[in-house]
Design a protein around this nucleic acid. Structure first.
Lengths: 163, 163
DNA sequence: CTAAAATATATGATTTTTCATATTATTTGG
DNA sequence: CCAAATAATATGAAAAATCATATATTTTAG
């Protein structure tokens, strides 16, 4: 005899359903859900998510060009151009065209941008640690390597199709 | 002596960088990258991504209400309302208010919607299989369980904060 | 050396998305 | 039973994202 289940009670993963076991759903949902809390902190710091990503990327490599920033920030080029302009208006970054290649625009952290990112990166690290603590140790240990493998394999795969 | 590395050559994961080893980046990037090819097929089928997600969700549970669809399709409620209206205009779904609770709008697949999803789900399954083949077997086997654990843990966590 | 192709960024116009809030319906506490 | 609280959906206005394409620069082929 099966008990009555309320409509709103979410019984994820019911036996034979497609979505709850579908890799692309799991990836997107995990990304969304895992990011939610930290992204709320990002917004409290007065940044939008792609802006935080830009700052983080620049803290790794100052002077990255727009196209590369777009890749890492997972945003379209034309969108990233506008985001960078807005960030420049708020004195978070400055743009300088590359002397070796005038097409390229290199983006650098300002002092203010550096301060902001120096607060956020430690927060991100701490949040990541708390996420990994949620997982049983063995799963936590495999998740990142598996994602990296997947990304690397997809990149290889992409190269094959456009050689 | 280290060789000269071109600017555009993406040397992911350089020793001491933050972003390439950051879980939220890996999740978002893996989700994006893994989805890209299949989502291109979805668009060729004349659907936007959230529309495909709605159809997939309805093929699991016909008559799901807007709020629940929004959760699974990872879209905001007001956006999903509009998406459903557009899908109704294209005769992919129909809406019926719940007789037991007049606030709820239940969404059902039409014959046409059922046909579309019956083509796309097998494509999705095949694409998923090809993704998992890209991973070394042991990693492929751990990825989905790890993502599910993470999602489950995050859900538990969320409940604690709003009891 | 030069014309054509490729690359990097910017921009205008349109479409999406979001945010706040209105509307309608149900539940709950007194 | 009623008033207030809660819940589900809809909607208008504003912000953001996308698409196609323009502009500027560098590379490549001949």
């Amino acid at each position: 005899m099966s008990r009555q289940v309320s409509e709103t009670e979410n019984d994820h993963g019911a036996a034979d359903e497609f979505v709850p076991d579908y890799l692309l759903y799991l990836l997107a949902a995990a990304s969304e859900s895992a990011s939610a809390q930290f992204h709320a902190q990002v917004r409290k710091a007065g940044l939008r998510v792609p802006e935080w990503r830009v700052l983080a990327c620049l803290s790794d490599r100052d002077g990255t060009m727009i196209t590369q920033l777009a890749r890492v920030a997972l945003a379209e080029q034309s969108r990233l151009t506008r985001i960078i302009i807005q960030m420049e208006d708020r004195d978070l970054v400055i743009r300088r065209s590359d002397p070796k290649d005038g097409r390229r625009v290199r983006v650098f952290l300002t002092e203010k941008g550096r301060e902001v990112v120096s607060v956020l990166v430690p927060m991100a690290r701490q949040h990541e640690a708390s996420l990994l603590e949620l997982l049983r140790t063995n799963e936590g240990a495999t998740l990142k390597p598996a994602l990296k493998s997947l990304l690397a394999a997809l990149e290889e795969n992409g190269k094959k199709e456009f050689p």
